[in-house]
Design a protein around this nucleic acid. Structure first.
Length: 278
DNA sequence: CGGCCAACCTGTGCGC
DNA sequence: TGCGCACAGGTTGGCC
């Protein structure tokens, strides 16, 4: 479920359970997800006190009192389920790979069918230089993401704008859904070469990306399958998609009579309106 | 360095 | 009902 708004939603659900909370018992049931789970996973986390959760791009950083940071990524199919202290904890389900039992009796479970997610360790002092983190571009909701940054990045690129916006080095946290949606709102064809965007288009794209992400976060993210939120509630931003997943449906732009098309770019589906996106 | 593809996995839905 | 294929919210290593 995981682009920036979904990861933010998961983190917000997790924070009240984990922040300022000691882990009674941490367990990993799989030797590896996308990469190896640290062999000392259990000992490093069990008994440790979690001080803070931070989202960086699509990563959730779990900071501990002793300086340990657990870097968690949900991949394509990663989910977090929480079973409260006053509910019966279910037996381990298929694809449950990691569990954290807190001192309060809450159980946090990471489930990931495809195992494209990951959990690795870093430290508070080393996190900014960690291989997974150091090359990530600015947060789209922060000050570092602005038209000057975007213009400079796009100028160097000859690939389609769709591909460029998916590049986490240019801007953090966007994925297939929100890139499609942003380009639809901006009226920019996904096939346009990045270095052909005008200053005006780039100027417009920045606040559009911000707005879409904020709207999606407010909606609890998008639920394509299964649960988006830690609480089990469904995100509902998918009801507001204008392009993503709407192949063959009429374009929702005022007065537009065209139909949303699906094309493939870099082996991934792109949805767009051939009339209003130029 | 930029760009492109295959690869990493499992599950689901659809056409036949 | 079963089979095979296409496709799925991400990332990255290897190769031009």
């Amino acid at each position: 479920m995981p682009e920036l708004p979904e990861v933010e939603t998961v983190m917000r659900g997790l924070a009240p359970i984990l922040e300022n909370t000691r882990i009674a018992k941490a367990r990993a049931y799989a030797p590896k997800l996308r990469v190896d789970i640290p062999k000392d996973f259990d000992v490093r986390l069990s008994g440790n006190l979690i001080t803070r959760l931070i989202r960086r791009s699509k990563y959730i950083l779990i900071e501990c009192e002793d300086g340990l940071v657990a870097i968690l990524h949900l991949g394509m199919s990663g989910r977090i389920n929480i079973y409260g202290a006053n509910s019966k904890h279910p037996p381990r389900a298929k694809h449950d790979h990691i569990t954290l039992l807190t001192e309060n009796g809450d159980l946090v479970v990471f489930n990931d069918a495809r195992r494209f997610g990951l959990l690795v360790f870093s430290t508070v002092s080393g996190i900014d230089q960690h291989a997974l983190i150091k090359d990530i571009g600015p947060e789209p909701l922060g000050n570092g993401f602005n038209s000057a940054h975007l213009a400079a990045g796009l100028k160097k690129r000859k690939s389609p704008i769709k591909n460029s916006l998916l590049d986490q080095k240019l801007v953090a946290g966007l994925g297939n859904i929100y890139v499609c949606e942003a380009l639809w709102r901006a009226g920019i064809a996904p096939t346009r070469l990045a270095n052909t965007l005008t200053a005006v288009e780039i100027e417009a794209l920045v606040p559009i990306i911000r707005t879409i992400l904020k709207e999606a976060i407010a909606a609890g993210g998008s639920t394509l399958k299964d649960y988006a939120q830690v609480s089990g509630e469904l995100g509902y931003f998918q009801h507001r998609f204008n392009a993503y997943g709407r192949e063959g449906e009429p374009c929702s732009a005022d007065g537009c009579r065209a139909t949303i098309q699906r094309i493939v770019q870099s082996n991934r589906s792109t949805f767009y309106c051939p009339t209003c996106q130029t």
